[in-house]
């Protein structure tokens, strides 16, 4: 079957006042339908840039990206993006924040209201739909942001270090919740993180990127069964995968 995301020889260079930045060097990558793929790599390796290119928020200097067979030339309907911070609009209630996606895409809000409430229940923040964002904790705000990314039922969910700003306990819980949501929704997920254990917990495939200019160094398959939990990380194959990715990234002190 053809992949949902097809990244072909993408190169990204910026010109800045400090001189040219070579963010991505020739990235080629496929993500299959329904797959959960994480991208890990050192800070500044261009993983967020790659995500923005796939979302159509940035245009690559060279190469091309297809999502669902269609060449990406700008933001497109088949995608929902979750950012590192929830970026909920402070003047809108949680429900209105989720329906922003519908409003901006000129879809019928009345029609998607029910779905919004279902998603709110799915991520476990029912009862908060009429609250303003500041009344929710960081973890709950990020759950609302996930609802906003899923409300128009896109086949692809792009997540840019979505739990990076949360405390460790909340983060663990959100990882498990995300796995459950992913198993229930059947979406394709591209997940940027710099936590190797998080990537192993969640992914089918882990893309390990090199330092800038970023390129794909290796693909690591994670095959052990789902649903996984935090104990799964103690399995020998998980430990081995962590070691291997660390070795590839060169972060293991000898």
């Amino acid at each position: 079957m053809d992949p949902l995301i097809d990244v072909q020889q993408v190169i990204m260079r910026y010109r800045t006042k400090g001189g040219p930045v070579h963010a991505l060097a020739d990235v080629t990558l496929q993500v299959g339908r329904g797959e959960f793929v994480s991208v890990v790599g050192p800070s500044g390796c261009g993983k967020s840039t790659l995500l923005k290119i796939i979302a159509g928020l940035l245009l690559p200097s060279a190469g091309q990206v297809r999502v669902d067979g269609v060449r990406v030339s700008g933001p497109h309907p088949g995608v929902g993006v979750v950012f590192q911070s929830p970026v909920l609009l402070a003047w809108r209630t949680i429900l209105e924040n989720i329906l922003l996606q519908i409003e901006v895409r000129h879809l019928s809000k009345a029609q998607y209201r029910k779905r919004a409430l279902d998603l709110i229940a799915l991520v476990g923040i029912q009862g908060f739909e009429d609250k303003l964002p500041y009344q929710l904790s960081g973890g709950m705000q990020q759950r609302a942001a996930i609802c906003r990314a899923l409300i128009h039922d896109p086949p692809l969910l792009l997540m840019d270090e979505p739990f990076g700003a949360l405390d460790a306990l909340t983060r663990d819980r959100m990882d498990l919740e995300l796995q459950r949501i992913w198993l229930e929704s059947g979406k394709t997920v591209l997940f940027i993180t710099h936590s190797i254990p998080e990537a192993i917990l969640l992914s089918d495939t882990i893309v390990v990127m090199s330092a800038r200019p970023g390129r794909v160094q290796e693909l690591v398959q994670v095959t052990f069964p789902r649903p996984r939990d935090l104990k799964s990380l103690a399995r020998p194959e998980a430990v081995e995968a962590i070691e291997r990715i660390r070795a590839i990234m060169g972060t293991v002190p000898d």
Binding site: A55, L57, P75, H76, P77, G80, V104, R105
Partner: peptide, 8 residues
């Protein structure tokens, strides 16, 4: 970026 990703 959030609202642009919605094709705004």
């Amino acid at each position: 970026d959030m609202i642009r990703s919605m094709s705004a």
